[in-house]
Design a protein around this nucleic acid. Structure first.
Ligand SMILES: [Mn+2]
Ligand SMILES: [Mn+2]
Ligand SMILES: [Zn+2]
Ligand SMILES: [Zn+2]
Lengths: 132, 132
DNA sequence: AAAGTACTTTATAATGATTCTAAACAAGTG
DNA sequence: CACTTGTTTAGAATCATTATAAAGTACTTT
């Protein structure tokens, strides 16, 4: 299976549950922006079985740590993750509570002129909030 | 008192508790980036009394709704607020979990080229994560 | 393939931030 | 001062997330 390596790289044994999570996360071409609840719902629908929330949380966090997923900073009570781990920016549609990818060419290069001693830049992310 | 108007504008009667919250929030020149817990701690220290958390939450949310405070999107289990309500960007120091204001001249103008039908841009915020 | 070890899943409990509730209390009004 | 309305508060409720520990599975070693 094509996800076994991804799981092993993340320090996880390939189990039925984890492979199902992978299929939902990585089997599609388009970016998937999701909360844990979204993901659990999608697994249930696609595979017609329920995976314990603890397993979903653990797997998602292992992937995030390894860089196969990333978290998107948003003002929400739930944490949002993204299958697009490249450096990119977002629209956030406030009324639908949905994230939309922006291409870097939609935003242009961002040059941060200020420096803080002893710290280096890890990421630069733009969040564009949209209203109706 | 100088905060009575701010409170009335926010639809709140000026009470002892709310005026104390105002003093901590608006009596200083520098921007204050805070969580509800930070704010409650600071009130306790400055005024030597404790205000119920419900009151702190209610007051902060009323100010936010009126535009006297704003929320900063961050990956954290706690919500961060900002007394600087102008359009501006942030460094987020990951190891100290602290926000630092960036001047707009530190980032330069950001021109969002993509448009979404029926939606308009409400805000454009840059978050620069810093590591050691 | 059986046995042994280490890791995994799961239901359930614990935690922690935030919101709700309703009773005691304070502010505004005339 | 009486009256109404808004406020404070402790404590309960809610909800996302994390921890626990018992039963199950994957991998390794014979
Ligand atoms: Mn937040
Ligand atoms: Mn978040
Ligand atoms: Zn994205
Ligand atoms: Zn700020």
């Amino acid at each position: 299976m094509k996800y076994i390596e991804k799981l092993r790289n993340s320090g996880l044994r390939p189990t039925k549950q984890r492979l199902q999570i992978c299929e939902v996360l990585f089997d599609v071409d388009e970016t998937f922006h999701f909360t844990i609840y979204d993901l659990a719902k999608k697994i249930k629908k696609k595979h017609n079985n329920k995976i314990s929330l603890a397993t979903v949380y653990n797997t998602v966090h292992a992937f995030e740590k390894k860089g196969y997923l990333k978290q998107i900073p948003i003002n929400s009570n739930q944490t949002y993750f993204d299958t697009n781990v490249s450096d990119h920016h977002h629209f956030y549609d406030l009324s639908e509570e949905k994230l939309i990818d922006l291409k870097n060419s939609d935003v242009g290069p961002i040059n941060i002129k200020k420096k803080i001693d002893g710290k280096k830049i890890k990421s630069v992310e733009v969040l564009v909030k949209l209203e109706d």
